[in-house]
Computed example of a mutant assay.
Amino acid sequence: MGYPQTGNEVYVGFSLSDTMFSGIGKGTITRETVSADYLKDLFAKYGVVVSAKPEQRRLLEMVNSIYDLKLEIPETLKIIQLSEKHRRLVTISVQGLRRINGSLLPEYSDEEFQEATFGFVKYYVQSRHYDELMAENEKLKKDLDLEIAWRTRVSDI
């Protein structure tokens, strides 16, 4: 695998569920599309834990082959849950493959796999809630406006 074990690993999987976020409490989640090169740097810094079903092995092999991510291919599904130390989750989106009720199928033909394309989305849970950040921004803006008013005041004396 080659990635470090830091205690703050990035979780990687093919899907997203509410239960993944239940261990973090109240926070703000940011979402951004990222590149494979960005992920290599992120994984090199924090390490990585892969959560994938055994039948998704071939998809992981394709991702590793195409993007050289060197992701470990687990034998069993690892259930992941974000926590205070594990705040990053990357989902690998797969386009071009048939689905049933929105879910990937257990098997595909070689021809179907050739049609697959992949994308990467990073989710990050901030420790502070959006409402707290907005309140702090409002206070800072008010303080700044007062400071500007004081410095640019005009006196009639």
Rank of each mutant, 00 (worst) to 15 (best):
K85I: 14
E84N: 12
E107R: 13
R87Y: 03
N101S: 12
T91F: 05
Q126Y: 01
I80A: 00
E115Y: 03
A116V: 08
V90G: 02
L104Q: 09
G102V: 09
I79E: 14
R88M: 15
F120S: 07
S83N: 07
L104N: 09
R87P: 07
S83A: 10
I92Q: 03
T91A: 05
L82Y: 02
F118E: 13
R88W: 11
N101R: 13
E112Q: 11
I92P: 02
R87I: 15
Y123V: 02
Y124S: 08
Y123C: 06
S127R: 14
R99W: 01
V121Y: 01
R128V: 15
Q95C: 04
L104V: 10
V90A: 11
L104M: 08
E84A: 15
T91S: 09
F113N: 08
S83W: 01
V121P: 02
G96Y: 07
F118Q: 08
L105C: 07
R88H: 15
T117R: 04
K122G: 01
L89C: 00
V121W: 00
L89H: 08
R98D: 11
E115H: 03
S83C: 11
S83T: 15
N101G: 03
Q95G: 04
E115L: 13
V94P: 08
R87T: 15
L89G: 01
I79H: 05
F113Y: 15
V125S: 04
E115V: 03
L104F: 04
Q114S: 11
H86M: 13
Q114A: 15
Q114Y: 01
T117S: 11
G102I: 09
S103P: 00
Q95V: 06
S93F: 03
V90Q: 08
F118Y: 12
F118C: 10
Q126D: 02
E111H: 06
S127V: 14
T117G: 04
Q95T: 09
I100M: 11
I100Q: 11
V90H: 01
D110T: 14
R98E: 13
D110E: 15
F118R: 06
Y123W: 12
R87D: 13
Y108I: 06
L89K: 09
L104C: 09
Q114P: 03
Q95M: 08
Y124P: 00
E84M: 14
V90D: 11
V125E: 05
G119R: 01
K85V: 14
R87L: 14
P106R: 08
L97Y: 00
G102R: 12
G119N: 06
F120I: 14
I92R: 06
Y108V: 04
V90R: 06
F113K: 07
S103I: 07
S83Q: 00
I80Y: 05
I92S: 01
Y108Q: 04
A116T: 03
S127N: 11
N101Y: 02
L104D: 07
Q95P: 00
Q126V: 00
T91W: 09
L104Y: 05
Q126N: 09
T91Y: 04
E84I: 14
E115N: 12
I79Y: 04
S103Y: 05
D110F: 12
S83K: 09
I100C: 06
R128D: 13
H86V: 10
F118I: 12
R88F: 15
Y124R: 02
V125H: 02
A116L: 09
I80D: 04
R87S: 10
Q114T: 08
I79D: 13
S127C: 07
L89D: 11
S109K: 12
